[in-house]
Design a protein around this nucleic acid. Structure first.
Length: 283
DNA sequence: GCCCAGGAGTGTG
DNA sequence: CACACTCATGGG
């Protein structure tokens, strides 16, 4: 099943290649393939429009793609608001196509529990191993992300064999701790309560809670701070210190769209690490 | 081989 | 509150 969508601005490389999600792969033709719910989806630009192929193509897959790419985010408005920041303002236009994605809450939670103290290629490998080992096969080489019940059947030892390291215990315990109603309650909470609720889960600290709040629960005011962001905040804003201190700074500085500011700064820091030209410079 | 990774948990000052 | 230490492992 093929269809087209009006989602703009959108740059698939910026959006799917920057560590928000770990299950999307770029093809040699520039298209991106991944799994949404029970379908394998391929996204590519056909001229200016976004084209999608889904197999199987159930009736609401187009809606799922729109939700995944947060089609309703008004990027112009978000950038206008963030442009008040003199550091972000000059380089932001080139990142217009970078959108925050909206992941499945459970998949996002487990993915970012796995993401602790690992690099992105390895995280991708771990997440894909979980899917291949415990998800449902929907086409050759493509698997759903395992739901809580399926994943709960895996012993800690089995998970460790997939290369999860000490994260195996966190994933195993999270499966036992989270119930379906618990996730439902979190959905209704404001950001502060959501964040506090997530931190109660095993393997979830400040940073993972903010990633899950942002990418899984769609709270755009969340501002995850990892080692890359510590460098960015130090270099560009002269801010150093504890997580809570940096988080407070970001909240006051970037406001309700702090999550977008975070992705911009994160992307810039990765560019810099690769020796490429930076978009943002210290004032 | 070496360094580091989208950190969390626990204990101590 | 802030630090210090440990945790298991693979990608670059």
């Amino acid at each position: 099943m093929r269809f087209e969508l009006e989602i703009a601005p959108l740059d698939l490389d910026l959006t799917l290649g920057c560590g928000q999600t770990f299950r999307w792969r770029r093809g040699p033709d520039g298209s991106w393939s991944g799994v949404l719910s029970e379908s394998r989806v391929r996204l590519f630009k056909d001229g200016t429009v976004l084209a999608a192929e889904a197999t199987p193509g159930d009736s609401d897959i187009a809606i799922q793609v729109e939700k995944f790419l947060r089609a309703r985010d008004d990027i112009a408005r978000i950038q206008k608001e963030l442009r008040r920041d003199r550091t972000l303002a000059p380089g932001m236009a080139r990142l217009r196509g970078l959108r925050i994605v909206k992941l499945d809450e459970w998949e996002c939670l487990i993915s970012f529990i796995l993401a602790t103290y690992a690099n992105i290629p390895r995280i991708s490998k771990m997440v894909e191993s979980l899917a291949a080992g415990y998800g449902r096969r929907i086409s050759p080489g493509a698997y759903t992300f395992p739901d809580r019940r399926r994943l709960a059947k895996a012993s800690e030892r089995e998970l460790a064999k997939l290369g999860l390291g000490y994260r195996a215990r966190y994933v195993h315990e999270a499966c036992a701790t989270v119930d379906d109603e618990g996730l439902g309650r979190l959905l209704r909470m404001g950001y502060d309560d959501l964040r506090a609720g997530l931190i109660e889960l095993p393997g979830v600290g400040d940073k993972v809670a903010d990633c899950v709040s942002l990418f899984g629960f769609g709270r755009l005011e969340a501002f995850p701070i990892d080692v890359w962001m510590e460098r960015a905040l130090s270099r560009l804003y002269g801010q150093k210190g504890s997580y809570s201190k940096l988080r407070r700074f970001a909240s006051e500085r970037f406001g309700r769209y702090a999550g977008y500011a975070q992705e911009y700064l994160y992307h810039n820091e990765r560019l810099r690490a690769q020796g490429q030209a930076c978009l943002f410079l210290e004032q």
